[in-house]
Write a protein that binds this DNA or RNA. Structure first.
Lengths: 335, 335
DNA sequence: GAACTTTATGCAAACGTTTGCAATAGGGTG
DNA sequence: CACCCTATTGCAAACGTTTGCATAAAGTTC
């Protein structure tokens, strides 16, 4: 059933030309007469010929592969449960393919400590997109210093010598806080984990807006693992212990917001009458929850494209800078 | 900053041995004296040496890569929005890594029509896991016949000559229907797309249970695209046109169920008093929605492991058969 | 101490591309 | 017709591993 794999030399023989001619023909090299080129390409199609990528990579010193490294703190595990991550990866995938590259899906487990060695020296990929700065950025920095082409999805305000693409988290937090206050909130609460780079910025924006409004000096924070489960439990616990001492929630992600909302609903706290809720990300569920969730949308499509184009620019040797994506407040029923 | 990449020959020179000895040492070949082996491995670590995967693959005719091909019908696009897909891919990823393989994330767009040629002949991967049978299975069959090592995530009842791993969808549908009826439903409704292989089986199980219960001969079906948005609109539309002529919903996925629930809640149809709802998958949102969603859980962790181990077994030349995963009904508030 | 085994290492070919350079042929120019 | 230029093709080396086979050194046996 399985005839012997055709190699370039075989194809060349079939066409009655040399291997080099066949190679050039397949790469549309104008050195080869147009007629010959077309004939060989046709022949290749007929025989379902495909180049041996391993050989090609060895010779070219290029893989045409981009690795996506999902960088989760093993402790807090924003486990890969969050649908937002999927959105990001999936949009990166699209952008990568559009550029004719393939996507190696990796993680801290496979890459070990020496990312440069693993991906670049190991000729597994030409460059890496790291998703999530996480709490400790040492490995990212090491890889960057070693010269690994690299773009990070994170908070672009971070002072770092590598390229970062991400939303304007500070502004997002600010907008969320202002929105809550405009709806009459006097005691809004931040639900999340400020030590995390991106989330920290959201918290900063949130606090800045509140303080500068003169509303209060105290900027309430409920620190939790960033999962809907943890949010649910934390709000539940808080309601039991402190009662309802807040009238607004800015959750660091939609999943967290949804977990919080469940706890509220179970205790008959009305949304948005008693508590206004704002999330972050705008995952599909935000629109489909009831009440639907007001949230700060991150433009993952643009993110994917920017991440990839900046990485490719680096591969071309260009100097590229971090950049910040616009975010938009999507007003829905929860506020 | 970037010293020249060390190759095996350089490492060997540093160690004062030949290239072949170095190669064998790194692969822990007992031909080499233990002492030498350790010395070289130590040296490799010190210099952050890593093998050139391209060269290695070329020589070995093996990539140590498994491709995951997300197979979405471009029409119905169970777009990659569904969090359940993420769960599956992520669990496959884990299992793949545990076996020392890497994961190439691909899709119908990149792979083109000739999957065997692209992945296998192209030496991009040693085998492929296809996620989603989709509506048309011609390409899968072609690849399988061409001898591509392959495992499909789909419905194991499908009569096919390739290996399938998946949940017992028929039983899942049956259990869901029985559960609804046990809660007193007289007119349950199936919400989904029966032409899709896996979903079709769920529908069959659903109908079989209903018919054999003697409840009714008519087995209501509302055919929709499998997105929460479509579900929301369909239920909305139905309520407006037909009124509430059903008292139970079995949705083909949790996302669909959640979309339906939103429509119900908006029209003040009580869940579960007026309408009982059962979903499928058990995504994180099922537990966190309000009311929480009764659903048929698919064991994605086991799925990932089975998919990978069956694929690797094929690579070893073993004969492997399809297999079916147990599903469990998770009873929550929506029923 | 000659013959033979065992242990440890090195030589060189092979995997399938790509590409600099050389080579050939055909056509134009002076 | 000698010369050069252009268009097209082929030769052969190189990319960095792995591995069958040869080799060398050391130990064993009669």
């Amino acid at each position: 059933m399985q005839q012997k794999k055709l190699k370039l030399a075989d194809l060349a023989k079939l066409a009655g030309v040399s291997t080099s001619t066949a190679s050039r023909a397949l790469n549309d090299n104008p050195l080869i007469k147009l007629e010959t080129r077309e004939r060989i390409q046709q022949l290749a199609k007929e025989h379902n010929f495909s180049l041996n990528a391993a050989a090609s990579r060895l010779r070219l010193q290029k893989t045409k592969v981009i690795a996506v490294l999902i960088n989760l703190d093993s402790e807090t595990e924003q486990s890969i449960d969050d649908p937002f991550l999927l959105k990001v990866v999936s949009d990166i995938n699209l952008a990568v393919n559009r550029q004719g590259y393939e996507l190696l899906l990796s993680n801290s487990f496979m890459a070990g400590e020496d990312w440069h060695g693993y991906f670049i020296d190991g000729r597994r990929a030409d460059g890496v997109i790291v998703v999530g700065q996480g709490k400790q950025q040492a490995l990212i920095e090491a890889a960057s210093r070693a010269g690994m082409p690299l773009v990070v999805w994170g908070d672009p305000k971070t002072k770092a010598d590598y390229v970062i693409v991400g939303s304007d988290n500070f502004l997002g937090g600010k907008i969320a806080a202002e929105h809550l206050m405009s709806k009459g909130c006097k005691a809004p609460l931040f639900l999340g984990e400020p030590e995390h780079a991106e989330l920290g910025e959201r918290y900063n924006g949130f606090c800045t807006a509140i303080k500068s409004s003169g509303l209060t000096e105290r900027c309430q924070l409920l620190k939790i693992d960033i999962t809907s489960q943890a949010a649910y439990e934390a709000i539940n616990h808080k309601l039991r212990n402190d009662g309802l001492d807040f009238d607004g929630i800015f959750a660091c992600s939609d999943m967290v917001a949804l977990g919080a909302m469940k706890a509220l609903k179970e205790r008959y706290v009305s949304i948005p009458n008693d508590v206004h809720v704002v999330g972050f990300d705008d995952i599909a569920m935000a629109d489909i929850s009831f009440p639907s969730l007001t949230t700060v949308r991150q433009d993952t499509k643009q993110a994917g494209e920017l991440l990839v184009s900046k990485l490719l620019a680096q591969l071309e040797g260009e100097q590229v800078a971090s950049s910040q994506l616009e975010i938009t407040l999507i007003e829905r029923q929860s506020s």
